[in-house]
Design a protein around this nucleic acid. Structure first.
Lengths: 215, 215
DNA sequence: TCGGTAAGCTGACGGCATGACAGGACAAGT
DNA sequence: ACTTGTCCTGTCATGCCGTCAGCTTACCGA
């Protein structure tokens, strides 16, 4: 499925090549976590990986290109998020449970990959279609699952006709992502982690079902 | 209130100086709208302003420093957002109206300043306290207003005791900001502008009041 | 064992951005 | 015209970017 890994100038990468390539990606990941995106330089990544800048350019066209690779890896790991919503009930106590677990899992996922997701978000917001596509790919499991849940409740008459499942799901996912990105901002303005999560879950539940949860 | 405008090396700026300074800020603003943040260079801004890089460094320590200035301007304009929430009712039809106007106004505000707000968001997410502070300053009118509204409804027993007004308000504002940043992402996945807004308003109303709106 | 071939890496280089400084141009008052 | 302080830019050392030729290393078939 995934075609062979190739260098910029077309050679196929062997074992050793793939190793250095991966090492560069790992080091880039670290750098993204520790310094502002704008200040991440090829030479720093290369130094950290114990290689030369020229080597970096063998495997990636530029920093952005490498970032896209990392984001692609993250997009693959996104499958685990599917479990948080697939086949879950949104009715009664079980529904409240679903909302809580979704929030918990989503925040954890975002926390684990915050550096790269931050950059993807920026790229998408700036209108770069490659980043935008990756962002929707990363969020799509949760997004479409929520959307389906709303649509199902709607077909049963439990949610108003004029609600757009896709719009609601998209907005809720955007909310979760944004809050995850700015968790520090919340704790700084006096909102504790412990009280943030249930309130998020409440908003998600309200958005999906249109009703208050029965706890 | 705002102390005199000063150059990096301490001189006070006169009329002419302030003009070029402002021109540099304007050009930077434009550049942020048209090219990725990572690719905005001092030399380009200077060229666009018809001056030299050295002049730029007279007024700002670096690109980031100039961005902070622009963001500060935006933070001052944020007063207009206060009108969208101050003294509005969240009860019955009037409440639904309030939610709609808030969404409309917020999205418009964000659209008008999207380039700079994008960068502020990034800086805050990266943990830069200066950007984080500016972000809360920009969002605080809407944020605290919503928070107060929830608290008020709560004191009247119309909202559950265990809801945290600050957490809910923060999450809703984050949602609005995130959706505004990624409006293109929505339209690309088949959600039209026209249906996005009422659904956002619905989520805001639900979050604040805990009930479905009466339209 | 021995080339042959492709993969893998780097030194070196022109080009460009950064950031600092000193000195020249300019406006305003005397 | 002269002085003063503001304002701008030419120039320079430094450092990163992105490319290339060329060297080393690993693999493979004979």
């Amino acid at each position: 499925m995934t075609g062979q890994v190739r260098t910029v100038d077309g050679r196929v990468a062997g074992r050793r090549g793939q190793a250095t390539r991966q090492k560069l990606l790992d080091c880039l990941s670290e750098m993204l976590s520790s310094s502002p995106y704008r200040d991440v330089k090829v030479i720093d990544v290369a130094r950290k990986a114990g290689t030369s800048p020229a080597t970096f350019y063998q495997y990636f066209p530029d920093v952005e290109g490498a970032v896209l690779e990392i984001a692609d890896e993250v997009a693959s790991e996104t499958a685990e998020l599917t479990e948080l919503t697939q086949g879950r009930s949104w009715v009664g106590k079980a529904g409240w449970q679903t909302a809580q677990e979704l929030v918990e899992g989503f925040l954890e996922f975002w926390r684990r990959n915050d550096a790269i997701l931050r950059v993807v978000d920026l790229g998408a917001a700036e209108g770069d279609k490659r980043f935008a596509k990756l962002r929707t790919k990363i969020l799509s499991p949760v997004n479409s699952s929520l959307s389906n849940s709303v649509a199902e409740l709607q077909s049963k008459g439990r949610v108003d006709k004029d609600v757009s499942p896709a719009a609601v799901a998209g907005a809720l996912v955007a909310m979760l992502a944004a809050v995850a990105s700015h968790q520090k901002g919340f704790t700084q303005s006096g909102v504790k982690q412990a009280e943030l999560k249930p309130n998020l879950a409440l908003l998600v539940y309200l958005g999906v079902t249109g009703k208050k949860p029965t706890k």
